[in-house]
Amino acid sequence: MTISGKNSKYMQEFYNELKRDLLFSFIGAIVFFGIAFTAPIKYSLSNIDIAFAGFPFLLYSLADIMQLRKLKIVGVKFSKKLVWALSTILTIVGVIYIHFAFEIYSGKFSDSKSLWVQLTLLLTAFCSLIGAHQMVFIIKKQRMEISPVLMNLFSGMRASPGIYKESEKAAKTWNETVTQKRAELRQSQQRKKKKKR
């Protein structure tokens, strides 16, 4: 929806930052499947190609999380403890990822289970990429926005608990707080300049 221009400008800008990485990954996947389906050897689901298509996403995620150390929210540095906590979580996910890839390659899963696990690993890595980059994007922008496309999607689901709707309220509160703190910071800086004069 974002690529077709049917999302907000904020979300379009966010996904534009990821477009190159996702495009290269998509092209790589197409080339791989082209080779796999035209080669005379039958493709085996005990291969880990699908799973490892997502492994770079975990590395991108870790790089984004480490980037948070250099960023500030209204002049305040991002919590180092939180950065290390998130980095540790991603590292653990990476170890689990490699463990399951090893299990698949060792032939410990049936074809259907192998495919299921590989797709789960791929989508987990993809979600990590989106989540980690979104944190960096929000802090750089000093503004948070909820995707209208996802809002419409979730509001149309009867089983949806309304968490996404609540996150819209949280984003609005966060934006108001940041705007207020920025104004206070500017006033404080102006006072300091006047005193120096």
Rank of each mutant, 00 (worst) to 15 (best):
T124P: 07
M151K: 14
T88G: 11
S167N: 12
E166P: 00
S147T: 04
L153F: 15
T173G: 10
A132K: 13
G131D: 05
F102W: 10
G156R: 08
Q180R: 07
P148C: 04
Y97P: 01
F137G: 10
L119S: 01
L185N: 03
S155G: 08
E184Y: 09
S147L: 02
T124G: 13
K141E: 01
S106A: 13
A101E: 02
T173H: 09
A125F: 01
T177V: 12
N152T: 01
P148F: 00
E103C: 15
K108M: 04
S87P: 09
I104L: 06
T120I: 10
T177Y: 11
H133D: 09
S147K: 01
G162S: 10
S106W: 13
L123W: 11
F126E: 01
A170C: 01
E176N: 14
I98H: 08
T124V: 13
S155D: 14
V136R: 12
S167K: 00
A170E: 01
W174F: 11
I104V: 08
T88F: 15
K113N: 11
Y97Q: 10
V178F: 00
S167I: 00
S128Y: 06
Y97G: 03
V95A: 11
S112A: 15
Y105D: 05
S160R: 01
C127S: 15
I163M: 12
L90M: 06
G94R: 04
Y105R: 13
K113L: 08
K165P: 15
K169Y: 08
L115A: 14
L185G: 02
N175P: 11
A85T: 15
I146D: 06
L90R: 08
F154K: 07
I138K: 04
F100I: 03
A101I: 02
R182W: 03
T120Y: 10
L115G: 00
L150A: 14
I146W: 13
M157Q: 07
S167V: 01
K181A: 11
